[in-house]
């Protein structure tokens, strides 16, 4: 057993996208095997890009141990805002956006109403960050500067090649968080050492990554017990209002 603390996974994915697929039942089995108490899931694939009703229903109706982040493609305009409102009524705990898959630059005006709506709801916003152009970590940081009271989580921590921009951006933007799901141990350690653990949440990126790998990566860092607890549980509990 790796976990002596209750664990919240702040970034799992439900649906089908390219070679990845995961349903709620399978995620729950994997959570049980890894002793993960709760997962925050967001849609992937068609449910992320075009069919929000289906994608959001998948994560919002997955049961009490899986809480959902809703998504809506900003290009839907008012309909996107309606989808987010329905998500709130159905118990969503935040907003997820994937600028690469959904086809927008985070700083584009088309996306701002969604960010502002999340701010109005008091939600955190998880944004997939990674390969340059639309998934540019620094573009997410720009939006975070404009909405300083809203927590923005850099999903995947800039994986793969924006790892070198993460430490400086993290230092400059106090409302920027990261999930550890695709980060290497060295990257997590650097953030904890420089800024403490309070803006880092454990994530799995299931089904792309594996719980066992992600949990062992954290264990190897030999973090103090309070830092482990913060990353594995307390930060996500606070951030998502669980």
């Amino acid at each position: 057993m790796l976990n002596t603390l209750p664990v919240i996974d702040a970034h799992a994915m439900l649906g089908e996208e390219a070679h990845l697929h995961l349903d709620a039942e399978t995620l729950l089995r994997r959570m049980d095997a890894a002793e993960v108490t709760m997962a925050i899931a967001r849609p992937m694939g068609a449910g992320l890009v075009v069919d929000h009703a289906a994608g959001n229903a998948l994560v919002l109706k997955a049961g009490p141990r899986i809480r959902g982040l809703v998504t809506a493609n900003p290009w839907w305009g008012g309909k996107a805002l309606d989808a987010v409102a329905r998500g709130r009524d159905d118990g969503a705990v935040g907003l997820f956006l994937d600028p690469t898959r959904q086809g927008f630059m985070p700083t584009e005006s088309i996306a701002m109403p969604l960010f502002e709506r999340a701010a109005e709801y008091g939600w955190p916003v998880l944004v997939r960050t990674g390969t340059y152009v639309c998934a540019d970590l620094l573009a997410v940081a720009e939006v975070a500067r404009r909405l300083p009271a809203t927590p923005f989580i850099a999903g995947f921590g800039g994986f793969a090649d924006m790892w070198f921009d993460l430490p400086g951006t993290f230092a400059a933007i106090p409302n920027l968080y990261v999930d550890t799901s695709m980060m290497i141990g060295d990257g997590i350690r650097a953030l904890v050492t420089a800024h403490g653990p309070s803006r880092i949440v454990f994530g799995s990126a299931e089904p792309r990554n594996r719980y066992a790998v992600c949990l062992r990566t954290l264990e190897r860092l030999g973090l103090a017990e309070d830092a482990r607890r913060a990353i594995l549980h307390d930060n996500a509990k606070r951030l998502f209002g669980l």
């Binding site: 290497i184 141990g185 060295d186 790998v213 990566t217 190897r220």
Partner: peptide, 11 residues
Amino acid sequence: ATWELLAERID
């Protein structure tokens, strides 16, 4: 990166 990366990638 450090030795942990080797362990992570084997995992």
